[in-house]
Computed example of a mutant assay.
Amino acid sequence: MTNELVLPTSIQPQTWNADTAAMMEFAGLTWLEQRPDPENPGQPKSVRMYAPSGIMAAFIAACRRTGLDPTAKQIYAAQMAGKWTVLIGIDGMRLVAQRTGEYDGQDPIEWQATEDGPWTTVPPKQPFSARIRIYRKGISRPLEQTVTWAEFGGTKGNWDKRPSHMLGIRVESHGFRRLYPMELSGLYTPEDFEADGELIAQGDNAPAAPSEDWTALFAAASTREELEAVRLRIPEAEKNDKLRTAFLARAGYLSREEARTEDADVVTDDSQTTDEGAQAPRPDVETPQAPSAPAPSSVPEALTQEEWEAAEAARFDAEQGVSDRG
């Protein structure tokens, strides 16, 4: 199969060749994002992003198990409510079933328009339920699967425009997973999640634009106070890991700048004291010590940069409710 030529043998991106990298990008496992440049406020830079290594490994294993081709969009990766999963289209499920050599056809999808209404192969304007029968060689009776609109229907996109078609895909995908658990276990179609508005994929399925360009506002903040003010304005529905990363990057940069400024002020004060001719204290005379000033709002000396960023991330999550990516 052609996809065997480009599937990576490693989940380490530095080992990929050009064909493999292109295939992984097409499958949604790597992409470019515009991120604020902490060293050049207001100047975004392109950053190559990668899906978690676990989902990369699961994706490669699913490709080998099913024989599906990512370049034909038969299989790809996406996020659902911030958690990654491997998705396949209904055509991919049909192909997997055929390749087993045990698929023995299926009856046409049927719908009910009402709970007590007759079953019909003519899609109603608004279905109550849908059912399908799928046959497998060696099994005397077909597998029959039924789903209802109340449990599996949606309200957005094609669910509003083509409700019977969408419910038909859901009943068919459920039936295939039940009939071929070894080949299709853990693999879902986009329709399985679009009903709940949970799919957050790259490209055409990307989430709606935010109400403001929060990453640009983070980059424009010149103090920690301004940065915090921007953070507090972000609506709950728009919080995500991307914004958390941008916030931490800018917070770290501002903290380092504040630390440099404070160090410079200390040096200036010492030089002025020397110019004024102040005499150094005698070593045999104890000099009263002034109360120590509070620690600046920068990276504490007792913490490494990584420890500080982890603490900031935890605080950001706790206060703002940003969920970690699975």
Rank of each mutant, 00 (worst) to 15 (best):
P36F: 08
D104I: 03
M23N: 09
V322H: 02
P70N: 00
E33R: 15
P181G: 09
Y76I: 08
T20A: 14
Q34I: 11
A61G: 07
S185T: 09
T66N: 13
D324Y: 06
P36Y: 02
A51E: 00
E226R: 12
T215P: 14
D284S: 13
P181R: 00
S164C: 01
Q43G: 02
Y188C: 12
D270Y: 08
K73M: 15
A219Q: 11
S298R: 12
P124I: 02
D269L: 15
M56V: 14
S140G: 03
T20E: 07
Q98E: 14
P300S: 05
D265H: 13
V122T: 13
P291Y: 06
A61P: 12
P281L: 11
Q272P: 08
G82I: 09
P41E: 03
R133I: 08
L167M: 06
A22C: 14
Y180M: 08
D213I: 07
T287N: 03
N240Y: 06
I88P: 05
W149H: 11
T114Q: 06
T245A: 13
A318Y: 07
Q98S: 04
K125F: 06
T146Q: 05
A201S: 06
R136V: 13
Q305G: 09
T261R: 10
S323E: 13
G28H: 07
V6G: 09
L248I: 07
N40R: 12
E151A: 02
R256L: 08
A237E: 12
L7T: 11
D213T: 02
E319A: 08
A130D: 03
L217I: 01
E115H: 02
V266D: 03
S297L: 14
L167F: 04
G28N: 01
L243K: 11
P127F: 05
E144C: 07
R131P: 09
R256T: 09
R133S: 10
P44A: 07
Q74D: 12
Q279N: 11
V47I: 14
I234P: 09
L187E: 01
E194L: 13
T155L: 13
M80K: 14
E301V: 12
M1F: 10
R260A: 11
E212R: 15
T245P: 04
F59H: 12
L179R: 01
Y253I: 05
W308F: 07
I234Y: 04
A310H: 03
D160W: 13
E198W: 08
R48S: 10
D69G: 01
A201W: 11
E301L: 11
R133H: 07
S164G: 06
A78E: 00
D104T: 11
F26A: 15
P190N: 06
G154P: 06
G326F: 04
G197D: 12
T223R: 04
V267P: 03
T66H: 10
A264L: 04
A290R: 12
S211G: 10
A229M: 10
T268E: 14
C63S: 06
P108M: 04
K125G: 12
E110W: 11
I11E: 13
E115F: 00
W159P: 04
